[in-house]
Design a protein around this nucleic acid. Structure first.
Lengths: 238, 238
DNA sequence: ATACAATATGTACTAATAACACAATAGCTC
DNA sequence: GAGCTATTGTGTTATTAGTACATATTGTAT
């Protein structure tokens, strides 16, 4: 019957110093929507090992910073935004995933209304790239992107997340286009509208599209109480 | 137009040494089922700060070890098992979650057939505790437990995971009991059986329960091709 | 005025879910 | 072994969600 030896945290830390040898980073999959395409914000890798390849924006987690805060910091740095929905998806921790040493990364995704927010283009190597036109990326970033995309696809018809990709006012056609761009399939218009109206997410603005070369559609907005911004988490809304 | 400076990984590592100051751990929520209750394997905290509180089994990730391997190592250490389904759920990284220093932890859950596998009881402070009778735990382990429980509840009726909690042969009543223990609700027997038969997960063994003080039920097993073990991942089985 | 392009809308079929009741069987007791 | 008890096994109806599919309407452009 082994007698349990109680340790203080301070003693424990000194006995485990060798484990403080792994860095932690966050990587952000920032999705946008433009010209009927789902896009993701990527940046040219600055490592010689990955020269010419795109990578996801990310950074090391600081010792005095929560991991969620680190991802908001990356988001803010790259887009100037700090009030959008950001969701943790998965941690990636293969031993050799990063050539600089042992780095475990935690992946987040977010949805950005490209057209209404200017990027902080610190250099022209940062840009919005069509998601389905990226095959090879630096590090394991293709895997990270695919994992986040899959999560987004699972959520898109179930929870009101996709509205972050759109301006405040939109037509049902625009909403359907976004959904199709994310899912990579075509949807039946009548069934789509029925599903959306069943969800009861939208408020009819009694306004019409303008300057379209055809019969204009009605404009809607997401109900205020369903807006997700900042760190607020809304769970399981139907 | 800032000129991009290419760095080698080696140069980058030396310039970021201050970030290699955060430890990474894994914590495992090992669920079991016994006496119609959902249980979780817990261990008395060995830190003075949390004296008397239960904590989840976990360990630091080693520098030369994948994070998934670390969770399998913890599982093996505590239960002697290495061929069960283990799923990553979430990373927890508040600055002050661990009194020994900055430790980010990655949570996994797994399902164990308690009755058929002896624990490696290195000391008697390790035991199976009813999940719904834990209110306060060491560190943020209550939050981790709740997060993993929620994930399990979401999956249990959709994917064939729960069979890992049961022996190889079981009756439909036993299966229903497990589901009820996980979800914390009562289910209608006829509807439950219909749903299960629709899933087509089970194989009728043409055997009967024995030594029950009532009409015996038929015994079933999970179809071989649906067994999840080791690191194999089966996705989206209906 | 006509052609065009897209909007708006409804019905019939199928699948899944939820509520609900009764006959059959094995062990146990007396 | 008669009767009691506990639990198995099974089916119908009503409701809701999902899928496939066609026609009339409205505004712009020529």
């Amino acid at each position: 019957m082994a007698q349990q030896i109680l340790k203080t945290a301070a003693i424990e830390k000194s006995s485990h110093l060798e484990y403080f040898n792994i860095a932690t980073s966050v990587d952000c999959v920032l999705f946008g929507y433009e010209q009927k395409q789902l896009k993701v914000l990527v940046i040219k890798s600055d490592l010689q090992e990955f020269m010419g390849l795109w990578s996801l924006p990310g950074d090391f987690v600081r010792v005095d910073e929560d991991i969620d805060d680190a991802s908001y910091r990356v988001l803010q740095q790259r887009t100037g935004l700090n009030d959008v929905y950001l969701e943790q998806v998965h941690a990636f921790g293969s031993v050799n995933r990063h050539p600089s040493g042992r780095v475990i990364t935690i992946a987040y995704y977010s949805l950005i209304d490209i057209t209404n927010h200017q990027l902080r283009l610190t250099d022209n190597e940062l840009h919005w790239h069509p998601v389905f036109e990226l095959s090879k990326m630096a590090f394991d970033h293709k895997l990270i992107l695919d994992t986040c995309l899959q999560r987004l696809q699972e959520k898109v018809m179930e929870q009101p997340v996709v509205f972050n990709l759109l301006p405040g006012k939109f037509s049902l056609r625009e909403l359907q286009d976004v959904n199709e761009a994310i899912l990579g399939v075509e949807l039946d218009r009548r069934n789509f509208r029925k599903r959306i109206s069943l969800k009861n997410w939208l408020e009819d603005l009694n306004e019409m599209e303008e300057d379209v070369p055809h019969r204009p559609g009605k404009l809607y907005k997401l109900k205020d109480e369903l807006l997700r911004h900042g760190k607020k988490e809304l769970h399981e809304i139907s």
